[in-house]
């Protein structure tokens, strides 16, 4: 770009709201998504709202039934947080698969959410966990279900004067389990071909309920509601696992692109769910 963009770097959330209320502009946090676009000359904005110094957006707190993760929490912070480790281990697992350490140190949960890529690695976890988003503006704070946040490919319900402030993740209870699996193009620095998070409650080998979030298989992150219903209250048998595999392969809506094929994504998404279910009934619990 020939012009040099103007940057506003507020120190407080109110200041940030104030700036956004005047004029819509691109919001930059850790920069791991936006700077890539800027470097590739694919983003030519005249102004940026730099929220990196808004400390109110940081922190991971225990809120009783849930944990509250500030929008600026980095992947590294989530990985190291005892709260996230204990109460949302799939989010730790997901964070460890993002890029590599350099990206984990700067990339933020809020950024992953707002960037709205269908391949965002944390998104299936938030979907499976039925997380809630705190969205703020000068007009006040509102709560919304994460699973209602996306409307279409890279489109969210966020108004131009709003910021995602924090994410509330309901804690994993003692009798619940979670699971995360990312199938990427390689073992680090990879974009996912399919990425799945599961939260479930099992009693012996009966699946009381299951929540399945999947990324990279549709224009947005999705919940596999049909497959979840199919599995609810059922005893896990190899027959049911096969049904589940078929069901979710048909339920998702992947495309063929430069990374992978529709056929592969359908098939492997099914296999990954099957792996989770096998893990419940296998004696070693590892699903292998």
């Amino acid at each position: 770009m020939m012009h040099t963009p103007k940057v506003y770097s507020p120190r407080s959330l109110d200041e940030a709201y104030e700036i956004l209320s005047r004029r819509a502009m691109k919001v930059i946090a850790g920069g791991t998504d936006l700077m890539v676009l800027i470097n590739a000359r694919q983003l030519d904005a005249e102004e940026f709202l730099d929220i990196w110094r808004v400390d109110e957006l940081r922190g991971i707190a225990d809120e009783g039934d849930s944990i509250r993760i500030g929008a600026l929490a980095t992947y590294t912070e989530m990985i190291r947080s005892p709260l996230v480790q204990e109460f949302a281990p799939a989010l730790v697992a997901a964070s460890r698969t993002v890029g590599a350490i350099q990206i984990q140190n700067r990339g933020t949960l809020g950024g992953n959410i707002v960037n709205a890529s269908p391949a965002g690695d944390s998104l299936p976890v938030l979907a499976a966990y039925d997380a809630e988003l705190e969205i703020g503006s000068l007009r006040g704070l509102r709560l919304m279900s994460f699973n209602q946040f996306y409307t279409a490919y890279r489109r969210t319900v966020l108004e131009s004067d709003e910021l995602v402030v924090a994410v509330r993740v309901p804690k994993l209870k003692a009798d619940e389990r979670d699971f995360f699996c990312k199938v990427g193009t390689r073992r680090a620095q990879a974009i996912s071909k399919t990425v799945m998070a599961v939260k479930a409650k099992t009693e012996n080998e009966i699946l009381e309920w299951i929540r399945v979030g999947v990324g990279s298989v549709a224009p947005t992150v999705v919940r596999a509601y049909k497959t979840e219903s199919l599995l609810a209250g059922r005893a896990i048998t190899s027959d049911l696992i096969e049904q589940a595999r078929q069901s979710i392969s048909l339920e998702v809506n992947p495309i063929t692109d430069l990374r992978s094929t529709e056929h592969y994504r359908r098939r492997v998404t099914g296999n990954v769910l099957a792996r989770f279910l096998r893990g419940i009934i296998d004696s070693d619990g590892a699903g292998t």
Partner: peptide, 27 residues
């Protein structure tokens, strides 16, 4: 690479290793 993939631009900022090609200097 200019896209935060190769790490050749890594520096340490406040104790953390970070790709400097992705950091705007205002931060």
């Amino acid at each position: 690479c200019g896209e935060g993939e190769c790490g050749a631009c890594s520096v340490i900022i406040n104790g953390e290793v970070i790709n400097s090609c992705l950091v705007p200097v205002c931060q």
